[in-house]
């Protein structure tokens, strides 16, 4: 099992599931839902947020939030 926070840069993966948490539904609203293809495109320095590509738009989220997203 791999989560989005541990993913290396520029590797396209598919979202498998999202662990339930207060912020999960926000992620879904933003278009990050199971079945979606995502890719980590750049990261903030020193363990800050990461930026992912969602169909050509860039979404940033914190590592904590990214760890809720299981990918394959």
């Amino acid at each position: 099992m791999q989560t989005l926070d541990l993913l290396q840069l520029n590797k396209a993966v598919t979202v498998k599931s999202l662990s339930p948490n207060g912020v999960t539904s926000k992620l879904v609203d933003m278009g990050l839902y199971p079945g979606k293809t995502v890719e980590v495109v750049f990261k903030a320095p020193f363990g800050g947020p990461i930026a992912i590509d969602l169909d050509g738009y860039t979404l940033s989220l914190r590592i904590d939030e990214a760890s809720l997203v299981e990918v394959e």
Partner: peptide, 8 residues
């Protein structure tokens, strides 16, 4: 809950 889910 504090979160930062933000469009760039």
């Amino acid at each position: 809950k504090s979160f930062l889910v933000m469009e760039l």
